[in-house]
Design a protein around this nucleic acid. Structure first.
Lengths: 232, 232
DNA sequence: GTCTATAGCAGGATAGAC
DNA sequence: GTCTATCCTGCTATAGAC
């Protein structure tokens, strides 16, 4: 397994060709059903080159999966920006709906859904990889949400005693149903209208629990339904 | 592939031995990594008997997965009973928390989690099976929740304009985070305290959106946060 | 109906030429 | 560094004895 360090010129071209081929094949057929022969052929490379570059099948698999995971992290970027851009109470609901729409749209992408299936399929054989994926992608999105909600709480736009809990609830409210459908129905593209509807319904429920009633807005009323009862 | 119709006496014993062995092995190692040899050996049966009974590997797999799915349906039973037993507003929150706890506990069971991983892993190769599983297990739970919430709405205990949406939100609120952790961290048993906390937090958010404010209860206040805004 | 034995093939990994 | 050719194991599925 050659070090990926610095120099080899055309070697890197082949390396990325292999990575790309392996990515596609693993995502579509899984770990066991993808053969090193298929990967080599698809990449236009001999099997020996493949083994010299990546050692063995397991290593290639882990490298590839972590590579895609890194790409998927870009989803997180938009979250912080959107939440930080909220200044007034009037912007709250439309901004959260926009956030929910773009977040959901990004995650129900066929590629991301396949990655999720693949990681779960091999979670028992590659537990570290599953953990790394979860911490690398979904977890970061949740952290970004929590940080944003925490800041909105400080500014008095939301009342969020536990930002982590709120972030999790937000994510699963708006994303859960569509993601599960995408996972269990391969090839079923979510239509835009569905994403918008799910985002709207999820945000409405979220705001019912977390919107600060004291900050302007239409209704005066109750100071947030008693959360102490949640502890039982 | 022999008909499973009526008589063969000791054949049925072997058949269930095969099914049991196949269930365990498929759940632990997946479709590709489980060999017919392993199944036959584990079941204490020759491969020929196995092929006579189930035709081929795909058929055996589908039969086994649908078999476990049927068992998982028992989760649904308790839902309707619990929701139907709610008579007064005071019982609402504790009953929903109990429901959330038992529902979550049942779904994050190692066996159910493995089944979910397995079905997802093969969703692209067995799309009909994935659909059958989803309609057979999770979908039924959601339907039971929706029916229950609809009846609570009629009785004025909840204000639920869209029972399906509410059911989905309830399920993902209380179950989502723990299920994902169970899926991505094999071997991580959820502790009771975590399940209780997740249930309490989820139900609190759910009730903030759907509890009828007019029906007794501690706070008088607002008539449910305007849902029309969700449409944008 | 059930077994042992085997056909036939695909997959992971490597030896040795260039 | 890269290739072709090959080793060996393990897999699905079946032929033929009892």
């Amino acid at each position: 397994m050659s070090p990926v360090g610095h120099l080899p010129r055309r070697t890197l071209v082949k390396r990325s060709a292999i990575a790309e081929a392996a990515t596609t094949l693993f995502l579509h057929h899984g770990f066991r059903a993808t053969s090193m022969d298929d990967i080599a052929t698809t990449a236009g490379v001999s099997k020996v080159t493949l083994y010299k570059q990546f050692g063995d099948k397991r290593t290639l698999f882990e490298t590839v999966v972590l590579g895609i995971t890194d790409r998927a992290v870009t989803i997180t970027a938009g979250i912080e920006a959107t939440l930080a851009g909220i200044d007034t109470a009037d912007q709250l609901e439309p901004a959260l709906v926009d956030l929910a729409i773009s977040y959901t749209s990004a995650v129900v992408t066929p590629g991301v859904v396949r990655l999720r299936r693949l990681v779960l399929a091999e979670a028992e054989r590659f537990p570290d990889l599953a953990a790394a994926y979860f911490d690398g992608a979904p977890r970061r999105a949740l952290d970004a949400l929590a940080a944003g909600f925490g800041r909105l709480d400080e500014r008095g736009l939301l009342t969020v005693p536990a930002p982590d809990t709120a972030a999790t609830q937000f994510a699963y409210l708006v994303l859960g149903p569509l993601l599960d459908r995408a996972l269990f129905r391969p090839g079923s593209r979510s239509r835009r209208a569905e994403v918008v509807a799910a985002a709207g319904a999820g945000v409405a429920t979220f705001l019912a629990a977390y919107q600060s009633r004291t900050s302007s807005r239409s209704m005066p009323s109750s100071p947030l339904v008693k959360r102490s009862s949640a502890r039982r």
